[in-house]
Amino acid sequence: MKANRAGTPTGSRERPGNLTISHAADNAVVELAVHGQWTRHTAVDVYDALRKALAEQPSAIIIDLQEMSDLDGLSVPTWIAASRAAMSLQPPPVVALCAPPTRRLVTRLRQLGCARFLTLFVTVGQARAAVANALPLTDRLQLRWLPPHPDSLTAVHDAIRSADRAWTVPALVGAAQDVARDLVTDSLEHAGTAMLFTICRRRGSLYLALRDHEPTLPPLRRPGAGGGTPARLPVVNGRSCVWGASTVHDGKLVWAVVRSRPAPALSGAA
């Protein structure tokens, strides 16, 4: 998975073996698995990952701590900070922690009263089922497997106008259509396969995603960076607050978030 904030350098701070990050097909759910011993380096990596996840305004963040060791409960401030940052979003995403109830970390969280604002699960499967039952279906529009033809862009623009009529988001329509044009044009030029286009409503933002059958990810670059070579997806990079790309089993997913106001800061976590 790659992600980039518009106007900032690309790259990930993930350390091999510490974190695994995955997204649902429509980016409504972000899963973060933490492995090994909790250290200051792990805290920094998790902080960065959670900050990026919150910027995407998902409906839920599932944090898998099954394979993490934290005997002294040093990670507690990170989970509290993540929950507070999530609660400042409207609507707030669910932050679900998954760990065996016998873990000292879970005992510490319960002693501090964190169960009032953190949802605790024993397994990731339980968290996924609970989140799936809570996600609203009316906040998503999807165009399934459009043909690799320029006319498909018209269908996507029509869907964005339909989203505005349903959700009343006129301030986001122009930027969303510009970003959609960049996504569709890039897929036509570099994939040439059928496209699945998804539009999701977040409070104050729209999430747009294009999935095709070409697995090669676009480079995450700032426009004009590097030897004068034109950057791919310059409109996505310039008009979205955060965007990224990830491989899926039959191709890739490229997504972007168009927002009318900034995301909350994640403070006090590292």
Rank of each mutant, 00 (worst) to 15 (best):
R165D: 02
T154A: 15
S187W: 02
R103F: 14
P147F: 10
S187L: 11
V179G: 00
L188S: 11
H149V: 15
P101S: 10
D186K: 14
V106E: 08
S75A: 09
R144Q: 15
A132Q: 12
T185N: 12
L143S: 10
A163F: 00
P77R: 03
R144T: 15
V122Y: 07
D178Y: 09
G125I: 02
P147C: 10
T78D: 04
A85H: 00
A96T: 10
R110Y: 09
L137W: 07
A96M: 06
V173H: 01
H190N: 14
A134F: 03
V184F: 08
A191N: 08
L172A: 06
Q177F: 12
A127I: 10
L109E: 08
I80F: 01
R161V: 04
A191P: 07
R104V: 11
V169R: 00
P150I: 08
L188I: 10
A132F: 05
P100I: 06
L141V: 00
N133E: 12
I160S: 03
P136H: 07
P100R: 01
V106L: 03
P101R: 07
H190M: 15
V124W: 06
G192K: 09
P100A: 05
R108Q: 13
R84L: 08
F117Y: 12
F121I: 05
T119C: 01
P150A: 12
L153H: 14
A86W: 03
R161G: 04
V173I: 12
L188K: 08
V131C: 06
L112D: 12
T107R: 13
A134Y: 04
L109F: 03
V94P: 02
V94C: 04
A175D: 09
G192D: 03
P100C: 02
I160W: 04
P147S: 14
Q177K: 09
F117P: 06
L183G: 11
W167I: 00
V179F: 00
V184S: 13
L74V: 12
Q111G: 15
T185W: 14
A159P: 02
R108K: 07
R110D: 04
D139M: 13
P150G: 14
L146G: 09
